[in-house]
Amino acid sequence: MTTLLESDEHKSLREAVSAFARSRPRATGPAESRHFWQEAGKLGYIGVSLPEAYGGGGGGVTELSLVLEEMGAAGNPLLMMIVSPAICGTVIARFGTEEQKRTWLPGIADGTRLMAFGITEPDAGSNSHRITTTARRDAATGDWLLTGRKVFISGVDIADATLIVGRTEDARTGKLKPCLFIVPRDTPGFERRQLDMELHATEKQFELTLDDVRLPADALVGDEDAGLLQLFAGLNPERIMTAAFGIGIGRYALSRALDYARERTVWKTPIGAHQAIAHPLAQAHIDLELSRLMTQKAAHLYDAGDDMGAGEAANMAKYAAGEACVKAVDQAVHTLGGNGLTREFGLATLITAARVARIAPVSREMILNYVSHQTLGLPKSY
């Protein structure tokens, strides 16, 4: 499924990813998901957005979001694509030292290394300015010491390291400013606890505790004084990729519902001939297509270096895709009736998965706040 905005190269990539993902069984467990990830990495799909000099495909978020969407549409969405190449890979490629790039990017690109991303905290929620994970220098050694907590962090158990968002104190003002640190999985003082989730996903969620985690000076990614610039270099791709994730899931659910509606006959004609079935499915398709256009716009703006325009479009794309995904999954399950809740048809587990596109990485309400304040110029209530 292509659009007018796509080049011939993009269409070919979309077709190749679709053929690959559809030729593999749905990954229903961690081992299957990891195998699928490794296969995709060998084919260059995981690292398509990373620089060629470090083993990537030399593309951008446009190509990476296309890959994730087609995997989702085939029933194999990879949540960690949002995290490892899109957030962590992008941040390191843009702001990392040469050593950090050589150490991490080739492995992220070919799927042999994974990186998680830790920003959300129990008491901060959507207010990133309330992050309390702090980093301070050890004057004697020059090392960094990190202390704090994180929650709802995906895939920490399978990641080689986590890119942690901490805050350092500005010596001049005393204010805290965000900084990014690479924390290897087995670093002393870096503890994880798996959260008991109703969400059915191969990637687990964790709460992290950092108790004076000692890191070398070169664990800092980028400039200590860059602040929000570096952070949002990863958050805009995160929103774009979450949109692609939601569109892919919505397309998969819709395709299952369409197959069923064409074949299921209760009276004289297939149920898809009845407008009560056909129209909601048509509406779901329209919503998915519209959200995909905004996702492509956001990706193009980001890849063109328009961070301001990309921020607005990425938030809109994530909002639109989240809504379209939930509605498509709901209508797909409803179309199948009782069969929609059976394991055989594989749609019931998508009910909770679809909510992820609405809730994470930022809620739809916070996106509406962003648009009302930043785009429409309305005053804040907080």
Rank of each mutant, 00 (worst) to 15 (best):
L68E: 01
T97C: 02
A74H: 04
T242E: 02
L195H: 03
G59D: 13
R22T: 15
K318R: 11
G309L: 08
A313I: 02
G59W: 04
A31F: 00
A201R: 05
K42D: 08
G227L: 00
E52L: 03
G41M: 08
L350T: 13
G305M: 13
D307W: 14
I247N: 10
M308L: 12
G59V: 07
I82M: 10
R137W: 03
T265H: 12
R14H: 02
I87Q: 03
P178A: 01
M308P: 07
L199F: 02
R26V: 13
L163E: 04
L180M: 08
G272L: 14
L208I: 14
L290C: 05
G111A: 12
H200W: 09
Y319L: 15
R26C: 04
A348D: 11
A353N: 14
C88A: 14
A21H: 03
A31R: 06
G346Y: 03
G337I: 14
W144R: 02
W104F: 05
Q38C: 10
T2E: 11
D212R: 15
R167D: 02
A353T: 12
D170I: 13
V266M: 15
D225N: 06
E238H: 07
F181M: 07
T162V: 14
V17G: 03
H10Y: 04
I271Y: 07
R22W: 09
F152Y: 05
R251Q: 14
A273M: 15
S7C: 04
T162S: 08
K380C: 03
E121T: 06
A328Q: 06
D225F: 01
I164T: 09
L78D: 07
G125K: 09
T103V: 12
L281F: 05
P280K: 03
I92P: 00
T134I: 10
I247Q: 12
S65C: 13
G118K: 01
R137E: 11
E32A: 13
A140W: 00
A328E: 07
C88R: 03
A321L: 08
L180K: 04
P85E: 10
F232Q: 14
R130M: 12
D259K: 14
Y260Q: 03
S381D: 06
L146E: 00
E52D: 09
A324R: 11
C88T: 10
F206W: 11
W37F: 14
L145C: 02
V156H: 06
V17R: 09
A276D: 13
G272C: 10
R239Y: 01
I182A: 05
S12K: 11
A109N: 08
K42N: 10
V48K: 06
L347I: 12
